[in-house]
């Protein structure tokens, strides 16, 4: 098993980040090209806690080395993500696990967005951790699968961050334009 951990700060409020999170893989994100579709499977609000729970299916397509494709059988993979937004405590938690190829390698990731302790109104803390485990009879193959997966996971995480920054910027701009438009109309 390998562990991947990462934290970073976004210079936007938690509310802005939590809205943009739903648009993370839209056309404004030109970096995360491995995500080709995001579908919502289920969504509920707990009437007592106000927690919004969403279940999504993320479709990925990424080129992998031929030896790995032989093991997994396909370039397209599916990830199931369950997220919870706790609006009272201001946290977004996303947990995801791969549905396909999970007999070869299991990647489970947890991401949390929360107000940054140093600047809770203007900055958001992002924490990401993932555990990657390859299954197989031969430890050499397991090691190779895990090494490739960790490397690719790290690359995708970096692209995800850059892509998300672009989405945040565009969202903020769209919001400003909307407000200015409203002012002009008034």
């Amino acid at each position: 098993m390998r562990v991947f951990e990462n934290t970073c700060t976004f210079d936007y409020s938690w509310a802005n980040v939590s809205v943009a999170n739903w648009r993370k893989y839209c056309a404004w994100n030109t970096q995360s090209t491995h995500v080709i579709a995001v579908d919502t499977l289920d969504r509920t609000v707990d009437p007592h806690t106000g927690i919004l729970r969403s279940e999504r299916l993320i479709t990925c397509k990424q080129n992998a080395p031929r030896w790995l494709l032989k093991l997994t059988g396909s370039e397209v993979s599916y990830v199931r993500e369950v997220s919870e937004v706790d609006v009272r405590n201001k946290t977004v938690t996303l947990r995801s696990v791969n549905l396909t190829g999970s007999n070869i390698v299991s990647v489970s990731e947890t991401v949390v967005y929360s107000p940054h302790p140093d600047a809770p109104d203007t900055k958001t803390l992002f924490t990401q951790d993932a555990s990657i485990t390859a299954y197989g009879a031969f430890s050499r193959i397991c090691n190779a699968v895990e090494e490739w997966s960790v490397e690719r996971f790290g690359q995708n995480a970096q692209k995800g961050r850059m892509g998300f920054e672009a989405v945040l910027e565009m969202s903020a701009k769209a919001f400003r334009d909307m407000k200015e438009g409203n002012k002009e109309e008034a």
């Binding site: 098993m1 499977l41 279940e55 299916l57 599916y78 199931r80 993500e81 369950v82 997220s83 947990r95 995801s96 696990v97 549905l99 396909t100 299991s106 489970s108 990731e109 947890t110 555990s131 485990t133």
Partner: peptide, 26 residues
Amino acid sequence: ALKEKGIYDMIKEARKTSPNGGSGGA
């Protein structure tokens, strides 16, 4: 579409093993 692509059963199975979603490794 999910049923046609054979993904529907995979999702159903995943819900059984991790009803709270992806607690898998955690």
